[in-house]
Amino acid sequence: MAPKVVLVTGCSRYLGGHLAARFAANPDIDRVLGVDTEPPSRDLLRRMGRAEFVRADIRNPLIAKVISTAHVDTVVHASVTANPAGPSGRTVMKEMNVIGTMQLLAACQKSPHVRKLVVKSTSAVYGSSSRDPAVFTEDMGPKDLPSSGYAKDAVEVEGYVRGFARRRPDVDVTALRFTNFIGPRIDTVLTRYFALPVVPTVMGYDARVQLLHSEDALAVLERAALHDLPGVYNVGGDGVLMLSQAIRRAGRISLPVPSAAVPTMGRFFRGARLVDFSPDQMRFLNWGRVVDTTLLKEEFGFTPRWTTQQAFDDYVSGRALRPLVDPELVASVERGVLDLAARFR
């Protein structure tokens, strides 16, 4: 059944904002509420059109009042994030993720109008280690539970969501475990990482990276909100890029760092406000992570339009990343050598 009143959390961020915009453009939806602690950028606000922005903190019980008075029937929880706002933002991020979800779910449980809950989760819940199977299906768990960071937040968030689903069996709950997002406009840890001119990697390791185009991510979230598709689904593009391959595709130069020096490196990059890598994300750089999307295609009924490789190429061209290693130069060197060889025939 199509929703009438939709509430989107995290609407000042890329995904939440654009999702609210999509709902606002849908004439079947009567009212769209966007919630976040800070107002969206002017550009995002313009895109959101008739969607109403509610400046509220989901950690605050006030959110319950918003949900019940507006008769919200569909809640899209898109504010769980891996990207802390600033160098000191980790604790705040954790609170927003975990406490925010708890409050939001408590509010949803109280309100009799809520019929559907869509949660943006992450494939980070599977962890990342050398003892994991190559491809994760939805029924697998992490080999060792991440002890901190975003992955742990996500595991806890999913735990609360399961609890909520138990207490409110009448509500359709969809949890979407996204792989890393990439796209020309979205801003994530990974998009900043690949934009570095010299990209540090962990020496001796090459991660398998599966990506999802941000447009596909929006389409999946929208579909989950508009249709009754309860369950847990992995969401990721087809195909895999090796980290080293992705760096070469972006025309960057990789700088292998010995694993002992990686934490120092991470602190340096965080201090320089370039990229904020948490320890679990650094583990991801060692081994990477690939998820199985059969359920998404067959039960959820969505096939990502971009493969991992296409999404990454779209990011590279959309960001106009100037390759340090010019592909033209490579091609001309190749031609030159072959010409030379032809001479010596």
Binding site: A134, M242, R249, E334, V337, A342
Partner: peptide, 28 residues
């Protein structure tokens, strides 16, 4: 012309590697 053929293959391989222009399956 065998060696030349091999050279061409080698160069094409080097170019593919430098540009990241190859396929890797989900197992890596």
């Amino acid at each position: 012309a065998g060696w030349e053929q091999r050279l061409a293959e080698l160069l094409a391989f080097a170019r593919r590697r430098l540009r990241g222009d190859y396929e890797v399956d989900e197992f890596g």
